[in-house]
Computed example of a mutant assay.
Amino acid sequence: MGRIALVGFMGSGKSTVGAQLAEKLDYTFVDLDTFIENRTQMSIPHIFATGGEAHFRQCEQEALNALGNQSRGVVLATGGGVVTQAPSRALLKEAWQAVYLRATPETILARVLQDATERPLLQDEHPDVRIRTLMAQRQNWYEEVADVTIEVDEFSVEMIVQYIVDWLDARFAER
């Protein structure tokens, strides 16, 4: 059994796709943000408010390391910024099969504005500009860790899940 990590910008569908993929593969689904909240007994916005982004990224790296060392048969939905830290990118490349769910800034904006979840990095007067800026900064990092990239804008969750299953089957057949 393997480890599959879904990476991509906030709102790209990592949690939604991850849950359905895990069910289809009979794997355990783990949302990294939820794992961190349970581990620290604090919400993500509270971690950002009390320790800043640097502290959150440290919590994220520790959680990623813990999951990578002990978990098999897991689909992990990472946070959108997990790739900003070199040690986290190294962990993703070393211990996980990473699937990059790539969406356009327009898709991301539409999804996160509909989402009631508080997004600490979008507490900005111009979230559209912030999204484009962060996506541009992170693009190369997502590509660096990705074993496969899926353009998600035009596809249903079911289609994306099937694409990943087919990709995994093809990878397994190559071995």
Results as ranks from 00 to 15, higher is better:
4 I>P: 13
46 H>C: 01
9 F>C: 09
139 Q>P: 01
65 N>I: 08
166 D>R: 10
136 A>I: 01
164 I>P: 04
130 R>H: 02
155 F>G: 01
10 M>H: 04
53 E>L: 07
20 Q>H: 15
118 E>M: 02
55 H>W: 06
27 Y>M: 08
39 R>H: 04
56 F>G: 07
77 A>P: 02
137 Q>R: 15
33 D>F: 11
39 R>P: 00
31 D>Y: 10
58 Q>W: 05
43 S>W: 00
162 Q>G: 06
127 P>M: 02
150 I>P: 11
172 F>L: 10
85 Q>C: 11
134 L>Q: 08
43 S>Y: 00
62 E>P: 03
26 D>Q: 15
24 K>L: 15
152 V>Y: 03
51 G>H: 10
21 L>M: 07
38 N>M: 03
139 Q>S: 06
70 Q>K: 13
26 D>G: 11
72 R>Y: 14
157 V>S: 03
127 P>C: 04
131 I>C: 06
6 L>K: 02
113 L>P: 00
171 R>G: 00
35 F>P: 03
7 V>H: 10
13 G>L: 09
114 Q>K: 14
95 A>P: 00
5 A>T: 02
167 W>Y: 12
110 A>P: 11
22 A>K: 09
50 T>D: 00
96 W>L: 00
133 T>G: 04
70 Q>V: 10
109 L>N: 05
139 Q>R: 13
2 G>M: 14
106 E>V: 02
68 G>I: 08
173 A>D: 13
66 A>Q: 14
105 P>Y: 00
138 R>Q: 09
133 T>P: 01
107 T>E: 08
